[in-house]
Simulated scan of single mutants.
Amino acid sequence: MKIVIADDHAIVRSGFTMILNFQPDMEVIGTAADGAEAYAAVAKLRPDILVMDVSMPPGESGLVATGKIKADFPETRILILTMHDDEEYLFHVLKNGASGYVLKSAPDEELLLAIRTIYEGGTYIHPKMANSLVRELFSRTETSGSAGDDTFEQLSVRELEVLPLIAKGYGNKEIAEKLFISVKTVEAHKAKIMGKLNLKSRPELVEYALKKKLLDR
């Protein structure tokens, strides 16, 4: 299995590279520090598996990169690595093309199992998160079409990046620089977020971000 690892921490990339290269059936052929680098590495190296952290500030996040990579290189299977066990976030990354979801707190054996599972064409989700995902799917089915539904599903991938930065107090220019987009685009995303979630002020937006644990990302 040819593997690329994307994580914004060099020590994490080095550690995972050692673990995976120690396996007789795995070889790390490249690494990346953010989503843009991950896309470039996949385009150049065409790995079987991309192991990618979902949150890689200040560059492009794994959430945004997942959708782009899956659209352009569908043969590469993506395993999302994250600190957060949130079923709504899990639902969103799977919908955007990831084949698996592993917590950073998981033991090495689980990471290896996840990689082998998705390489063989399966989907890997930790049992605890699988149960949460099933509950979330049932919840979405029951509330489908409800005007009061305020899950992540209403937001685009880019809006999911902009929202926590607004809630953390960053200005439009700072957000634009972090995400490599224009100030005008940031303003447009902010307006769409407020409209989709029926929020009237920044305090309401901050409260929503806290409720959804977005400030931890």
Score class of each variant (00 low, 15 high):
M1F: 13
K2E: 15
V4S: 09
D7P: 14
D7C: 12
D7N: 14
A10N: 13
I11V: 14
I11W: 07
V12T: 13
R13V: 07
S14V: 03
G15R: 09
T17V: 05
L20V: 14
L20A: 12
N21M: 13
F22L: 14
Q23K: 07
D25E: 13
M26F: 13
E27P: 03
I29A: 11
G30I: 09
G30T: 08
A33Y: 09
A40L: 01
K44Q: 11
L50W: 03
D53L: 07
M56P: 05
P58S: 01
P58D: 05
E60N: 03
E60Q: 15
S61Q: 13
G62I: 05
L63Q: 09
V64I: 15
I69D: 03
A71M: 11
A71P: 06
F73W: 09
F73H: 14
P74H: 08
I78P: 01
L79H: 06
L79Y: 09
I80H: 03
L81R: 04
L81H: 07
E87C: 04
E87P: 08
E88L: 02
H92S: 10
V93N: 04
L94C: 08
G97I: 04
S99D: 06
G100W: 06
Y101V: 09
V102A: 06
D108I: 14
L111A: 10
I115D: 04
I115W: 05
I115N: 02
R116T: 05
T117K: 08
T117M: 02
T123Y: 04
T123P: 00
T123W: 00
Y124R: 01
Y124M: 00
I125A: 00
I125Y: 02
K128W: 03
K128T: 10
M129Y: 05
N131I: 05
N131P: 02
S139F: 02
T143N: 13
S144P: 00
G145F: 11
G148S: 11
D149S: 11
D149K: 06
D150Y: 07
T151S: 15
F152T: 03
E153T: 14
E153M: 11
E153G: 10
L155Q: 12
V157R: 14
V157Q: 09
R158M: 15
R158Y: 04
R158Q: 15
L160S: 10
E161P: 08
V162P: 14
V162S: 15
V162Y: 12
L163T: 12
P164V: 12
L165A: 12
L165N: 10
L165Y: 07
G171S: 10
G171T: 09
G171V: 05
K173A: 12
K173Y: 10
K173V: 14
K173N: 08
E174F: 02
A176I: 04
L179S: 03
L179F: 01
L179H: 05
F180C: 01
S182L: 06
T185F: 08
E187G: 13
H189C: 12
K190Y: 13
A191V: 08
I193D: 11
G195M: 11
N198E: 13
S201Q: 01
P203M: 05
E204K: 01
L205N: 00
E207H: 02
A209W: 00
K212V: 02
K212G: 06
L215P: 03
L215C: 07
R217C: 04
